[in-house]
């Protein structure tokens, strides 16, 4: 028994070889501040696999969900800035600090606590209605909403989540009021629309496209600056005279204080990874095609997007009880 125990101890000690080499010399943790199965998780897994190939070290995913992502984001902001903790987050990273300001709460984190590494994907949301509802165009929907304010309902992935922000932006621009029924995640929000429990929904193309093809829902407009490749006949809100844009994007971040050479190594690993054909194929299949931007361009993109979201949030203001 004891001899067996010693053998087991030796075997266990032998594995983590303590080689002091260049970064990285041990596994990297990638925090995903959302539960498994969502857009962030679906993007992070292939990214981690592709980075692993480039870095020759495991990149291990850790789902630290909670508070619309604030828990995992705050954890990344507070992590040791040695490159062994990175994060894949969504557009909502810019909304949470603004919402904290709005409610005069102590912020969970600030955006300058993160160094952006790369943008992986970016999709405009699409406005869909249950196929059994009468509206065939945005104009019809707006006219009806003006006639009965607060009667037409929409579902969302949660208060101040991406889907809620997109719809409120539209409502604000069209000067109408919809009834908000928040759900917990984009999946349940779509289920509620399919069951006819709500009337309209804004969601990503990957989520709505299969339901459009099956004839269960009808798309009215998209939030992009230009039309979507997968739905070329769908007008954008800008074409229809509403000056709004909204994107659900996923990007990779590191704590801001991470040394520059390490950030460089990580950036190069992602740049190499996004060219990997397996990675591109996995993302295409998920309905979120790669929209890679390296750190400097991503920073500009992020600043523009954050300013737009902050403005929208201030315009929407506090939402009472959801």
């Amino acid at each position: 028994m004891i001899r067996f125990a010693f053998a087991a101890i030796l075997a266990a000690l032998a594995v983590p070889a303590l080689a002091q080499g260049a970064f990285p010399d041990r596994p990297i943790a990638m925090i995903v501040p959302f539960p498994p199965g969502g857009v962030a998780d679906q993007t992070a897994r292939p990214v981690a696999a592709a980075m692993e190939k480039a870095l020759k070290q495991p990149v291990v995913l850790a789902n630290r969900q909670g508070a619309g992502g604030a828990v995992g984001m705050a954890a990344t902001a507070a992590a040791r800035p040695d490159g062994y903790t990175i994060m894949t987050a969504l557009s909502s990273i810019s909304v949470i600090p603004e919402a904290d300001k709005l409610f005069e709460r102590k912020p969970a984190y600030t955006m300058d606590q993160f160094a952006p590494l790369a943008l992986i994907s970016s999709d405009p949301t699409v406005l869909v209605v249950n196929a059994e509802r009468p509206w065939k165009s945005v104009a019809e929907l707006v006219a009806d909403a003006k006639a009965r304010p607060g009667q037409i309902s929409f579902s969302s992935s949660g208060v101040y989540g991406t889907l809620h922000m997109a719809t409120e932006m539209f409502a604000h621009a069209a000067q109408v009021k919809f009834k908000h029924v928040p759900f917990n995640g984009a999946g349940p929000a779509m289920t509620a629309l399919l069951g006819g429990h709500v009337d309209i929904l804004a969601s990503g193309p990957g989520v709505v496209l299969p339901q459009i093809k099956a004839g269960k829902v009808r798309a009215l407009a998209g939030w992009g600056a230009k039309r979507l490749d997968v739905m070329p006949e769908l007008p954008t809100f800008k074409e229809l005279g509403f000056d709004i844009e909204f994107y659900i994007w996923a990007g990779v971040f590191a704590p801001a204080a991470t040394p520059a050479p390490i950030l460089e190594t990580l950036r190069r690993a992602i740049a190499q990874g996004v060219k990997d054909p397996d990675f591109v194929a996995a993302m295409e299949k998920a309905g979120t095609p790669v929209a890679y931007l390296d750190a400097p361009e991503f920073k500009k993109f992020w600043d523009t997007d954050a300013a737009r979201l902050a403005k929208a949030l201030r315009a929407i203001g506090k939402v009472e009880g959801g």
Binding site: Q211, A214, K216
Partner: peptide, 11 residues
């Protein structure tokens, strides 16, 4: 399923 080339959906 998605990673392995199957688009989930009603069809």
């Amino acid at each position: 399923l998605v990673v392995h080339g199957v688009a989930p959906g009603p069809t």
